[in-house]
């Protein structure tokens, strides 16, 4: 499926949640949607899943608007941090519901995942721990095998080994049944290896969309004597700097040519790669964050 979003806006009363958001997701990859709290991630995902309508702009999936379009919506699964405190049903009946309405649902795979996460089949869902409820969402989300599968911070409450299981199963199943998988997360450092492509949303706007590898290659930390560093980075986009005595570390965003790398090495500057987490933190940092730190 192909997802295309153009000039999308969403406002709640006076609050603008999304502003002129445009991007395309055209191949079966794992997309990481990153953004700080309140950046608009869930709002954006809920529009893609037809949970709500945009205020203006367009969203099309395979050329058609998804809202109230059964042909499209049956192929979009949106799993989020759902509140199950009223859910008196057990695992089996929840799986049955998904199986009945999801055309690609794989029951055997769902049962395999339920075993893998050691979910209790006898207890009602509301008695599950938060982590278990999240694992159940993972089971339903993966086993639905929807061409567009969205996990919005679905790991909440899951312990580290369960999260590892989730990531492994996700990659394995993505290999067997490639689809557009959107993972929205705060746990950037833990999940970055899952992403083929990264979209960063900041204050309701798209900050960037890039291949993971290409994005990572654009960030670098230049370390060396202050004057040399300043000289080297003066044409670059500086996103962060730290100084200790006469030594300076400058974090820049932008491609470094081979020639520039050679020059840096000649004048004794060290170029360290940046992790996605560091890039994300610096790119989405607001002025007020610095003030708070000071």
């Amino acid at each position: 499926m192909k997802l295309s979003i153009k000039d999308l806006n969403l406002t709640y009363g006076n609050h603008t949640a999304l502003q002129n958001v445009s991007f395309d997701l055209s191949s079966n990859k794992v997309y990481g949607l990153l953004g700080r709290n309140g950046a608009g991630k869930t709002s954006l995902l809920s529009i893609i899943a037809s949970f709500r309508e945009q205020t203006s702009g367009s969203i099309t999936i395979d050329g058609e608007a998804p809202f109230e379009n059964a042909k499209i919506t049956q192929h979009i699964t949106f799993m989020y941090n759902k509140d199950y405190k009223e859910e008196s049903q057990k695992v089996k009946s929840l799986l049955y519901g998904a199986q009945r309405y999801r055309p690609n649902f794989d029951r055997d795979y769902a049962e395999y995942l339920v075993k893998r996460f050691k979910l209790d089949l006898k207890k009602p869902i509301k008695q599950f721990s938060k982590g278990m409820q999240s694992a159940l969402n993972v089971c339903i989300g993966l086993a639905s095998r929807s061409p567009i599968t969205i996990f919005d911070e679905v790991y909440l409450g899951m312990d580290a080994p369960s999260r590892e299981t989730f990531y492994k199963e996700l990659l394995d199943d993505q290999e067997r049944h490639p689809r557009i998988m959107i993972l929205s997360t705060h746990l950037v450092s833990e999940m970055d290896y899952l992403f083929d492509e990264v979209i960063i949303l900041n204050q309701g706007q798209i900050l960037l969309q890039d291949d993971y590898d290409s994005l990572i290659s654009k960030g670098a930390k230049i370390i060396g004597i202050k004057e040399d560093v300043d000289q080297f980075i003066h044409t670059k986009q500086l996103i962060h700097e730290e100084q200790l005595g006469n030594t300076k570390a400058a974090t820049i965003y932008g491609e470094l040519r081979d020639e520039e790398r050679r020059n840096a090495s000649e004048i004794g500057l060290e170029i360290a790669p940046l992790s996605l987490q560091e890039l994300f933190v610096h790119l989405t940092k607001e002025d007020t964050d610095d003030e708070t730190q000071q």
Binding site: E68, A70, T73, Q74, H75, I76, F78, Y101
Partner: peptide
């Protein structure tokens, strides 16, 4: 909400 979460439209 249960049905919309399962990809069913509001009209259905």
């Amino acid at each position: 909400p249960y049905y919309v979460e399962h990809g069913v439209t509001r009209i259905d």
